[in-house]
């Protein structure tokens, strides 16, 4: 048997009804294996931010979660327009979301900052015109 659980999800673009379902599935697994509530919450917040980013900005994408006994590695990969200036995108409050999206309560410019804040490791790789891949590692306290 493998040493970890691998999960894959398709995240649909512009679908605000299903947005968050990948996060909810991962949360359910972590809770089931007794991961501390604070850690589940950190995963929930950072992964949800990533998932909603793909819904809003990138016409969806693919999410994976690799759950180990002591950590979870989440990737969120899309083939959207890419992030031109990652440093600027990391600034709290900076957003390129449209007014329509903002009127739904999204696009506050806290997505990437929150991912960095709540995950232990946050790697953002992006090429304009090709897509973005976010890798989030969250370690579980004993």
């Amino acid at each position: 048997m493998a040493d970890h659980v691998h999960l894959e999800y398709v995240v649909e673009g512009d679908n605000f009804v299903s947005a968050g379902s990948a996060t909810e599935s991962v949360k359910a697994c972590l809770k089931g294996m007794g991961v501390k509530p604070e850690d589940v919450r950190r995963v929930a917040i950072s992964m949800y931010e990533g998932e909603i980013n793909m819904v809003i900005h990138a016409n969806g994408g693919k999410a994976t979660a690799d759950i180990y006994m002591d950590k979870v590695v989440i990737t969120l990969a899309d083939t959207g327009k890419g992030i031109a200036d990652i440093e600027l995108a990391m600034k709290p409050g900076y957003s390129t979301a449209t007014d329509d999206v903002r009127s739904l309560g999204f696009g506050a410019g806290m997505g990437l900052p929150n991912m960095k804040k709540y995950a232990d490791e946050c790697l953002i790789e992006s090429t304009v015109g090709v897509g973005t891949k976010v890798t989030l590692v969250t370690k579980f306290s004993a």
């Binding site: 048997m1 970890h4 659980v5 697994c29 089931g32 294996m33 007794g34 006994m69 579980f140």
Partner: peptide, 17 residues
Amino acid sequence: VTPNRAEAFTRLMEIQT
């Protein structure tokens, strides 16, 4: 109730497989 992590992790892997 918080389950035992090692047992719960094995359970999750079995379920997932």
